[in-house]
């Protein structure tokens, strides 16, 4: 505490310089200046109130400021080191103050150092949490993107499912499918699961519910692309698809759907040979 109160101006400007240069101008000095001066003030208050208990109440203001700083750094694409340096650079800025070698001062410096290390770790924690939030919100966006409902023919729509089907994603797919039935006035829908690596009871239950919902809307669903390993797994699990029409391939399913919707299919056997 004493350490921070003497030579205040010198320490802060060293600190600000240190941080600014480590960020290589990607944040303006004025901004760093504002952030760090506020933080410095809070640190002094915190040390006065809460000693070195960085996770205690005395430091709640410091933690709030660091949370904001770390979140901003994470969003702006800085690395964890470039985030933690904001705190750690203060240790370096303090070194010149330590010139007169008294044991008391060294102890004080070490204790303050420990508190700062702890706060640096705190920034890394917040940083990581923020990155995780960013990743899961991107995953949510991807989920929206990666579930196209396509119109294969007049009256026939299909949704090709690719990748892992978690509950949230399946929900999105099913809602889109039902909406597309209304929008296109289709009476035949094909759910193709060729790209799905595993069908467990949850996925199966979502599939079953969708088929029932489609039926209530007067449409018929066909499930296609059930690969051999999936078929065997479904049977061993004990899932029954009841009277739901299933087809090996999307082509078979389309043929079935077209026939159902009254399109006359003529195979040109001779033309193929």
């Amino acid at each position: 505490m004493e350490l921070l109160s003497t030579d205040r101006e010198k320490i802060t400007s060293e600190w600000i310089d240190g941080v600014t240069s480590s960020l290589q101008g990607r944040i303006s000095k004025a901004e760093v200046d504002r952030e760090l001066r506020e933080l410095y003030e809070a640190l002094v208050q915190g040390l006065r109130a809460g000693g070195e208990e960085t996770r205690g109440d005395g430091f709640s203001e410091v933690r709030a400021l660091l949370t904001e700083l770390s979140r901003n750094r994470a969003r702006q694409g800085f690395t964890p080191s470039e985030t933690a340096i904001s705190v750690l650079a203060l240790k370096q800025a303090l070194e010149p103050v330590l010139r007169n070698d008294s044991a008391e001062e060294t102890t004080a410096y070490l204790r303050l150092g420990r508190a700062l290390d702890d706060l640096a770790l705190y920034t890394v924690e917040v940083y990581t949490r923020t990155r995780e939030e960013i990743i899961s919100s991107q995953a949510a966006q991807l989920m929206e993107l990666s579930t196209p409902v396509v119109k294969l023919w007049e009256g026939v729509i299909a949704v090709p499912l690719v990748g892992t089907l978690d509950s949230a994603r399946t929900q999105v797919v099913m809602e889109k499918l039902l909406q597309a039935l209304v929008d296109t006035g289709s009476e035949q829908a094909i759910i193709d699961i060729t790209g799905v690596p595993a069908v467990d009871t949850q996925v199966a239950q979502h599939l079953l519910k969708t088929v029932v919902a489609a039926r209530l809307m007067g449409a018929e669903c066909t499930v296609s692309g059930i690969r051999p390993q999936i078929a065997q797994t479904i049977v061993a699990l004990g899932i029954e698809f009841g009277d739901i029409v299933t087809k090996a391939t999307l082509a078979d399913a389309l043929q079935h759907a077209l026939r159902k919707s009254g399109v006359d299919l003529v195979t040109h056997q001779d033309a193929r040979r």
């Binding site: 595993a198 061993a236 699990l237």
Partner: peptide
């Protein structure tokens, strides 16, 4: 086939 079976079983138990 065995991979798919094991993964599916794990999925059930994890849930």
């Amino acid at each position: 086939v065995d991979q798919t079976k094991f993964i599916t079983a794990a999925s059930e138990l994890a849930r």
